[in-house]
């Protein structure tokens, strides 16, 4: 099977998954207990006003018609109006997305770099105090619920050592000047991103450590050492490079989980991103908003999965079939 055919098939799956999510997404908010229309329709309104409001929000059509309109609108990037703010959901998501992207990218990059480095380090120092300590800490962070660690950090830095802002993406009146604003945002980013790293690096470190230990026992590592390469080159260029395919695959495979974890992180640290938006929307039974946010997150998950498939093909020459590969 050629690499491009493989990709096409993956792409086909992705489209089907998105369609299913879309439908599910439509149904779930309508099946939730409670009547969402109460949010926007005051029973004191005149019947005419109620009818007009229902018409504006498209709530007077039969469900099937609502569904087709919803699908059609999705393709036009029209996610409807938020019940609570009466603004287009698309615009609100657009405002939130950069915040989420920043938090997500910072957490993801740092987690990967720190996790893999720690894994390589502990594998090379197998059995020493450093190895046991780091491995133990990683296991602990991996085993306890992430929100618990995040709440502890919140308490620690919000109350006992109040050196870090514990909510929001920037100070209420932002400081003057670009540089100060930039630093202010970084300052706000430390706790949420840092807590994500603490929560997630352990599993990367442990996985890297184990695959590294396995690789370090391979014959080609002895060859690399015999060639007189410096130990650092042996570790990175030979051992790490050869276990990168499974690690990268696993990392990309875990991206979806990180995306959904972002909802919790954003909620805990009041980070004005898509995740918090979703949470607020659900709480207020604002289903156009919830649907929109939910759909965006689902889209991110599907894209991450697709990215994992592509990346796997790139990092492992044995998979790169198109390039005169496996015979």
């Amino acid at each position: 099977m050629g690499f491009s055919r493989y990709l096409l098939r993956r792409l086909g799956y992705a489209v089907i998954v998105l369609f299913v999510i879309m439908t599910f997404n439509f149904a779930i908010f309508r099946l939730m207990p409670g009547d969402a229309t109460k949010m926007i329709i005051d029973p004191m309104f005149t019947p005419e006003a109620i009818a007009e409001l229902k018409r504006q929000f498209g709530l007077d059509d039969p469900p099937l018609v609502q569904y087709f309109k919803y699908v059609g609108n999705l393709f036009k990037f029209d996610l409807g109006l938020s019940f609570s703010t009466r603004r287009p959901v698309v615009n609100e998501l657009k405002e939130r997305l950069p915040n989420t992207a920043v938090l997500f990218l910072a957490s993801f990059t740092l987690t990967t770099i720190i996790g893999i480095s720690v894994g390589v380090y502990t594998a090379s120092k197998r059995g020493t105090f450093g190895d046991n300590f780091v491995t133990g800490a990683g296991l602990f962070a991996f085993a306890v619920p992430s929100f618990w660690i995040q709440l502890l950090l919140l308490m620690l830095f919000g109350y006992y050592i109040p050196i870090l802002p514990i909510h929001g993406t920037m100070s209420a009146p932002p400081p003057d000047g670009f540089l100060l604003q930039f630093l202010d945002r970084i300052h706000h980013l430390i706790l949420p991103a840092g807590s994500n790293v603490i929560v997630a690096f352990g599993s990367w470190a442990l996985y890297t450590r184990n695959t590294m230990l396995e690789a370090l026992g391979q014959d080609y590592i002895v060859t690399a050492r015999a060639k007189g390469l410096p130990e650092n080159t042996v570790l990175r260029h030979h051992a790490l490079r050869s276990v990168l395919p499974p690690i990268v695959t696993l990392i990309f495979g875990a991206l979806p989980g990180m995306v959904s974890g972002a909802v919790i992180t954003e909620t805990i640290f009041s980070w004005h991103g898509v995740g918090k938006y979703l949470m607020d929307a659900v709480m207020q039974q604002d289903y156009p908003a919830a649907q929109g946010a939910f759909y965006l997150i689902a889209l991110a998950v599907v894209i991450c999965n697709l990215a994992a498939d592509i990346v796997y093909g790139i990092v492992d020459p044995r998979i790169r079939v198109g390039e005169g590969g496996a015979k």
Binding site: Q218, D219, Y220, V222, T223, A224, R225, A226, K227, G228, L229, H237, H238, R241, S242, L244, P245, D316, P317, R318
Partner: peptide, 30 residues
């Protein structure tokens, strides 16, 4: 000493080369 003065052909010949590097590069590296 290593490789420059004494080089070695190993017992587990089948896995003596790193699967993720081109064979030429592995020689160049030495």
């Amino acid at each position: 000493v290593r490789w420059k003065k004494i080089s070695m052909v190993f017992q587990g010949a089948m896995n003596a080369l790193n699967p993720v590097h081109r064979v030429g590069d592995q020689i160049v590296e030495a």
